[in-house]
Amino acid sequence: DENEERIRAFALYKGIDPEKARELWERGEINKDDEEKAWREYK
């Protein structure tokens, strides 16, 4: 689903483990601007 892809995109963008990215996502600790930037680059 799209959230999974967004988490993966963010992990790649930040160079972090996707599981770590998922934890940040679930806790609401992902910066929305960074997340959008990562998503645009990923697509």
Results as ranks from 00 to 15, higher is better:
8 R>N: 09
32 K>L: 10
42 Y>D: 03
26 E>S: 09
41 E>A: 13
29 E>W: 07
3 N>H: 13
5 E>K: 09
26 E>Y: 13
14 K>F: 15
35 E>A: 15
32 K>S: 09
15 G>Q: 10
18 P>Y: 15
36 E>C: 14
42 Y>N: 03
24 L>Y: 05
34 D>Q: 05
13 Y>W: 14
37 K>I: 11
36 E>N: 07
28 G>I: 02
31 N>H: 08
14 K>S: 11
18 P>D: 08
40 R>W: 10
24 L>G: 00
4 E>R: 07
26 E>H: 08
5 E>M: 10
11 A>H: 00
32 K>V: 10
43 K>T: 13
41 E>S: 09
7 I>A: 01
11 A>E: 02
8 R>L: 14
33 D>S: 08
14 K>Q: 08
13 Y>T: 02
4 E>T: 08
18 P>N: 11
42 Y>S: 04
35 E>L: 15
36 E>F: 06
13 Y>I: 04
43 K>M: 13
17 D>V: 05
30 I>A: 02
21 A>H: 00
10 F>M: 12
22 R>T: 02
15 G>L: 03
34 D>V: 05
9 A>S: 04
38 A>R: 02
25 W>I: 10
14 K>R: 06
39 W>L: 07
19 E>M: 11
21 A>V: 08
31 N>G: 08
35 E>Y: 15
30 I>G: 01
2 E>W: 13
10 F>Q: 03
16 I>T: 01
27 R>L: 11
25 W>H: 06
7 I>G: 00
24 L>D: 00
7 I>D: 01
16 I>A: 00
38 A>Y: 07
43 K>V: 13
3 N>M: 15
12 L>T: 11
13 Y>P: 00
37 K>H: 10
8 R>C: 15
35 E>N: 08
35 E>Q: 12
26 E>R: 09
31 N>P: 12
6 R>W: 13
34 D>M: 07
19 E>S: 10
11 A>Q: 02
18 P>T: 14
22 R>M: 04
40 R>V: 10
7 I>N: 01
24 L>Q: 05
39 W>E: 04
34 D>R: 01
25 W>P: 00
13 Y>E: 04
9 A>T: 01
26 E>D: 11
14 K>W: 15
30 I>P: 01
16 I>Y: 03
18 P>I: 15
27 R>Y: 04
29 E>G: 07
13 Y>R: 02
37 K>T: 10
3 N>Q: 14
19 E>L: 11
20 K>P: 01
6 R>Q: 02
12 L>C: 15
2 E>T: 13
39 W>N: 02
